[in-house]
């Protein structure tokens, strides 16, 4: 790919932006890639155009509002057939925080195929450039008639020293060993990015056939294409099971949209009293509650609520 680029230095690849009703975060950051030398798209052999019919790459921002839809689709149709469509930020992919509104008609792939997602809220300019570089390679391959087996180009790690000192808010990471299934993360997530389901439960037909009636564990799924990287789940997580990583290398092909998630499973263990399934108390929670748990607490933690009540007040209170 690199060699081909050198052989044909000629025409810059032209970028055209379509705002489908965004909060302007992604748009302002895209403006930075036209105005600030360090992040200028020219370094990728690209330039912005104001004419949709010249567009090689469409950069779509926003959740696709009802009012913006027709204009967005008109601009999309005006761009040449070989165009590569990029969803910038999570809004076009999932609606982000704006999903489930009467005024939002997205996600955009309901109306048009998206080749590449660049998640972020908004993506930092480095992530925008990495995404645009992938889109450019895809466009070059496509205009030669090959569709695209391509590897994500190796990306430079952020060089600026303070950003490493105070890491940026990137992809979320889940540690099931610390999770106590309180579901506060889902409660505070504005984007509905976090989903809990019970593995082996009715809903999970595949697993049910393997183990009818006995749930194996609780599964958390966090969809990176809906997450807005606010970190509120991690802020309210009592045990630190959810944490913010500095990973912003998140651009991926449209076909991967729904596979791009974080998943973890918290297994049920049998109650040491009656054997009914319970979620074990994570050491992180015990530490938060008791600092140094006594042997008695260590024993109680293996009991289900009913057995605990039996132990401490001699009967189960209903």
């Amino acid at each position: 790919m690199q060699d081909q680029v050198k052989e044909t230095p000629a025409e810059p690849v032209r970028l055209f932006r379509i705002n489908t009703g965004s909060c302007n975060g992604c748009d302002v950051e895209l403006a930075v890639t036209a105005a600030v030398d360090e992040f200028d798209v020219e370094q990728l052999g690209c330039r912005y155009t104001e004419e949709p019919h010249e567009a090689d790459i469409l950069l779509i921002t926003g959740p696709l509002t009802v009012r913006a839809r027709n204009e967005a689709l008109r601009l999309y149709a005006e761009a040449p057939e070989t165009k590569v469509t990029v969803a910038v930020g999570v809004c076009p992919v999932s609606g982000g925080v704006f999903r489930d509104s009467y005024a939002v008609d997205g996600p955009v792939q309901r109306y048009l195929p998206v080749d590449l997602n660049v998640p972020g809220c908004p993506p930092r300019p480095q992530a925008l450039l990495a995404g645009i570089a992938q889109a450019r390679d895809l466009w070059r391959a496509r205009s030669k008639g090959v569709d695209a087996v391509f590897a994500a180009p190796p990306l430079a790690k952020p060089a600026d020293e303070p950003a490493q000192q105070f890491p940026i808010r990137g992809r979320m990471s889940f540690d099931p060993k610390a999770c106590v299934d309180c579901r506060m993360c889902r409660h505070v997530c504005a984007a509905g990015a976090i989903h809990f389901d019970i593995k082996g439960d009715k809903g999970d037909r595949h697993l049910r056939s393997q183990s009818p009636g006995s749930p194996e564990g609780v599964r958390l799924t966090l969809w990176h294409n809906s997450c807005v990287f606010c970190g509120l789940c991690s802020h309210y997580c009592p045990t630190g099971a959810l944490s913010v990583t500095g990973d912003w290398h998140l651009a991926h092909r449209g076909g991967q949209t729904f596979r791009f998630s974080e998943q973890g499973e918290v297994p049920y263990t049998p109650c040491s009293g009656c054997g009914s399934p319970l979620i074990a108390v994570a050491p992180e929670l015990l530490h938060a509650a008791f600092r140094r748990p006594t042997p008695e607490i260590e024993h109680i933690k293996t009991l289900c609520p009913a057995c605990r009540q039996q132990l401490s007040i001699g009967a189960v209170r209903r």
Binding site: G25, V28, E29, C121, P122, R124, P125, D160, P162, A163, Q165, F166, P167, I168, R169, V228, F229, C230, G231, L232, V244
Partner: peptide, 14 residues
């Protein structure tokens, strides 16, 4: 750059 260094994002500070 300051926003990103301190808050982790260049637009939405959380």
């Amino acid at each position: 750059r300051s926003k990103e260094a301190i808050y982790g994002n260049r637009m939405d500070l959380a």
